[in-house]
């Protein structure tokens, strides 16, 4: 493994006031690999994703994404990471198409890409309706489009299949699945589903790494403990 890692964490800590959200987390993710981040609500999964997305600064330890140290070189990687967050990050009063075109302009991406994505997720027909009028599943499909507009090489996916039925899940698979070739960080309430598509696993418990390593070496008992 001489390849430089796509994501490297060494002793990463982050707190909110007195509360520690992440403590001494270390991880190495080679390019193209998928990491499943598992843990209870509040274990630090979303905080980790927000730090990798350059939206939160780490308080201690080292973080490098695509070889660029954060937060110092955050600017250099912003156009190369895609975040599918818990919230869709779409304006409710604008239509899906308007939202995506706005974000595309911010990322310097052309309109054809927006149209291709809308078609890919089966949303062309309702792309001109305001987001607030759409069902949660449709909003999630638009959110996926938003996250991958600029074809990022690192995908940070927070519950990517939330609110999606199996058919919609298949539609977004080519955009956020393994086939993209992107390095992926994945969280899910459903550990089995996440493990099925992951190479590495990071188990978080109250902000600490309960385990970190290849999925194959994961001890199922410790996984059960994580959710105990």
């Amino acid at each position: 493994m001489d390849q430089p890692p796509a994501i490297e964490l060494r002793g990463l800590s982050r707190h909110f006031g007195e509360r520690t959200a992440l403590r001494q987390v270390s991880l190495r993710v080679p390019p193209g690999a998928t990491v499943a981040v598992l843990g209870h609500n509040g274990a630090g999964k979303s905080t980790l994703l927000r730090i990798l997305a350059t939206l939160l600064r780490p308080h201690a330890g080292e973080v490098a994404v695509l070889g660029e140290p954060l937060p110092r070189r955050a600017f250099a990687i912003r156009g190369r990471i895609g975040l599918l967050a818990h919230e869709p990050l779409l304006y409710r009063d604008l239509s899906g198409r308007e939202n995506l075109r706005y974000q595309a302009r911010l990322h310097g991406v052309g309109r054809q890409r927006v149209e291709r994505l809308l078609a890919a997720v089966g949303m062309e027909a309702r792309a001109d309706e305001p987001v607030r009028a759409l069902s949660r599943g449709m909003v999630q499909r638009l959110a996926v489009c938003r996250a991958v507009l600029h074809e990022p090489s690192v995908l940070l996916l927070d519950e990517p299949r939330a609110n999606l039925d199996p058919a919609a899940g298949e539609l977004v698979e080519p955009l956020i699945g393994r086939a993209t070739g992107a390095t992926r960080v994945l969280t899910s309430h459903d550990p089995e589903a996440a493990l099925a598509e992951a190479d590495l696993v990071l188990g978080l418990r109250q902000g600490r790494a309960a385990f970190a390593g290849p999925v194959a070496e994961l001890d199922r008992r410790r996984l059960a403990e994580l959710y105990a």
């Binding site: 997305a53 350059t54 939206l55 600017f75 912003r78 156009g79 990471i81 975040l83 967050a85 919230e87 869709p88 990050l89 779409l90 304006y91 409710r92 009063d93 974000q103 911010l106 990322h107 310097g108 938003r146």
Partner: peptide, 17 residues
């Protein structure tokens, strides 16, 4: 308000601008 409540801040901050 829309930026804060509908994620506009995050979306903007994620862009390389």
């Amino acid at each position: 308000v829309a930026e804060r409540e509908q994620g506009g801040f995050d979306a903007f901050l994620l862009a390389p601008v």
